[in-house]
Simulated scan of single mutants.
Amino acid sequence: MKSEDDSLDQNDDELFEHYRFVASKGQEPLRVDKFLMNFIEYATRNKIQQAAKNGHIWVNGGIVKQNYKVKPDDEVKVLFEHPPHEFLLVPEDIPLDIVYEDEVLLVVNKPAGMVVHPGHGNYSGTLINALLHHIDNLPANSNERPGLVHRIDKDTSGLLVVAKTESAMTHLAKQFFDKTSEREYIALVWGDVEQDEGTIEGNIARNPKNRLQMQVFPEGNEGKEAVTHYKVLERFGYVSLVSCKLETGRTHQIRVHMKYIGHTLFNDERYGGEKILKGTTFTKYRQFVDNAFKILPRQALHAKTLGFVHPITGKHMRFDSEIPEDMSDCIDKWRHYAQHTR
């Protein structure tokens, strides 16, 4: 699957976001609106259907309706209206949970549900918008994203370090590149993990049939090297609580690696964890799991620990954060269930 996205000026008052995808040779017939939902993050069905009504979806150069069935090698293009770039990076007075701050960096505890940087479908309310209000003249990284040394997913909670100067950005980014930073995540995963601890290795790249997912390529013929070290903290029968330490930092790394070894994150909708993957068929159990999903309406993943060397002092710094209430309550619910079913 090939894809590209760019911006096209339609006139002085409008700016559209343009996406182009070429369906793979193994593509099964699929409605174009559902096809695009698999390839454009945060694009709602309504937004895609509106684009179709406006004549802004093309397949092989011709305008199509939303019920067109995409076939192998089809070229699909879509245009969405969105704010100009200069309106994306605006300061917004959004509260930040700052764990530490000095003249060159800060460590923030990001809540679940907050997008890290503006992009399609999330033009405001992001961590970047909040940081720009808190700090003047944030340095841009290689992707023109102010202050960001690394990032975590929208529905993952936890710690991030932000650079306030260019020298700090360079110094911290090198630590992440050299794999000398410390990052520990806590995850609740489906299944009783067989080994008490282990290492998952496997290159990660985009899933060719669903661009919103990443995929492990164990032969190493695609993607980038990815290494995750895990350790089981508690076992609750049908789910396990694990610690994951990152040696590399690929997109969705823990989510993809844990699924790869058969232990998808609990309630990780993008990777199928919102379904009952382990357990019984009893109605009471299904109701219990549904209630657990309601308590934690996101993937069960928290960036708990972050360690690095300070760019100026050379001192090793290590920060730890509490597991947020929604995830903690879900874990307690499973712990109570396990104690009463053994």
Rank of each mutant, 00 (worst) to 15 (best):
I200R: 08
V309Q: 14
Y185A: 05
V162H: 08
Y285M: 07
K304Y: 04
A130G: 12
Y123H: 15
F39H: 15
V115Q: 02
V90C: 07
D12W: 04
Q299K: 11
K284C: 05
L30D: 00
Q215N: 06
V64Q: 02
Q195G: 02
V189K: 03
Y42I: 01
P111H: 00
V104Y: 09
P297I: 03
F35V: 10
G273K: 11
D33H: 13
F282G: 04
M114H: 11
E86Q: 14
E274H: 15
L131S: 02
E197R: 13
G262S: 11
K65L: 05
I323Q: 05
I48W: 12
E17C: 00
Q213I: 00
S167F: 14
A43G: 10
V108C: 01
V161P: 09
V216F: 06
G307R: 08
E234P: 00
K154P: 01
G158N: 02
K304F: 06
E4N: 09
E101V: 08
W58P: 01
V189R: 05
V289H: 06
Q27N: 07
G249Y: 10
P111T: 00
T341Y: 07
G202P: 04
V64P: 04
Y123M: 06
G121Y: 00
P118T: 12
K275Q: 14
W58N: 05
P311Q: 11
P218L: 10
S167D: 15
D74S: 01
L172Y: 09
M169K: 13
